[in-house]
Amino acid sequence: MSTGFARVAVLGLGLIGGSILQTVRHAGIAGVGYDVDVAALEAASSDGFAVAPSTAAAARGADLIVLAMPLPAVRDAAAALRGHLSPGAIVTDVGTLKQPVVDAVRAELPGVSFVGGHPLAGVEDTGWPAARPAMFRDASWSLVLEADTDLDDWLRLASFVCDIGARPVPTTAADQDAAVARVIGLPHVLAEALALTGLAGGPLGLTLAAGSYMSGSRVARTRPELVTTWCDGNPALPTALDDAISYLVEARDALRSGGSVLSLADAGHAARINWEHRQVEPVELRADAAALVAHGRCGGWITAVLQEPDGVRLLGMRPV
């Protein structure tokens, strides 16, 4: 299926937005970027990428607009697009939390086709210098499919995501936010706690710190204001924290009573190994919203969106 995107506007040229702009050019699609940060704009321009002087100028003539700024700036960016979108243009985003973005875009751009997105890619470094065109290769990319989402536009964006080497995962905003609470929000909170706990042990511990401490606290290097946008306002995160705390309390109580952490270590080891080695199988899917959301809910993703004489055929993978 050809997405037909002729011009992509990327609003926000940090790690993810910058990587999208680079990926778009690598795919042979015209792209233009904008960022309120003049340094980011100048860096992209000096690297040979087309940039615009404003949100409105970037959006003009684009048939796909990507909101790639931090969550607090999304509402203002969406409002700045009013009256500047081409007929039939699709708006998407790359934010970690989906429900706040869905609500903001609905409020500021009523009637505009919006498909929320979240590429599960990136590193702890930020900004244009960290961006790269291969960032999304084999990365999961959640695409929100709500009751009011235009299915044809969703399929068009899913095809684009496949074309740039990523794996679109159909989901609702609520499902995606509940999932990332445990695999993004929680790991960041634990990394901050680990970094502080290690520091509290004094200089000897920090000198002896090796792979486990460095790996566990690695994402604590992320800019704090970004971490808050991935955690604050997600109603599923406190429950995820409760679950993690219960495991820690169980381990603490076992050790205080002369017991062992073996049961926790066994269960955690099995969970990690099973995740690393989970088996998947190919499937064919109908272009049906409910079926697609169910596919994503069971851990499946899309590998191709094919336009055939009798309609759209989707190929995908799902865990066995």
Rank of each mutant, 00 (worst) to 15 (best):
D37Y: 14
A191K: 10
V183S: 11
P119V: 01
A294R: 15
M317T: 00
H269M: 04
T149K: 09
D232G: 08
P70D: 08
G28F: 01
D93P: 09
P187R: 05
D152A: 14
P168Q: 13
R278S: 11
D37K: 12
A147I: 05
G12Q: 04
D243L: 08
A251Y: 02
D148N: 13
H84T: 14
F5R: 06
R318A: 11
V112R: 07
S140E: 09
P100S: 09
P203M: 08
S140I: 00
A40L: 10
R82F: 01
L41K: 12
E281L: 08
G211A: 14
V280H: 12
Q279W: 00
A89G: 00
D253T: 12
A9R: 03
S212R: 12
L21I: 02
S54I: 12
G61P: 03
Y34E: 01
V180E: 02
P187H: 09
A270F: 06
A289K: 10
A44T: 03
A200Q: 14
A267K: 12
D243Q: 10
G202K: 10
R60P: 00
S113G: 07
F5S: 06
R223H: 13
G316V: 00
T171F: 05
T207N: 11
L109C: 02
A6F: 01
A181F: 01
R313N: 06
Q176Y: 00
W301F: 15
Q22C: 08
V8P: 08
G311C: 06
S2G: 08
D63C: 00
G88E: 15
W154Q: 09
R167E: 03
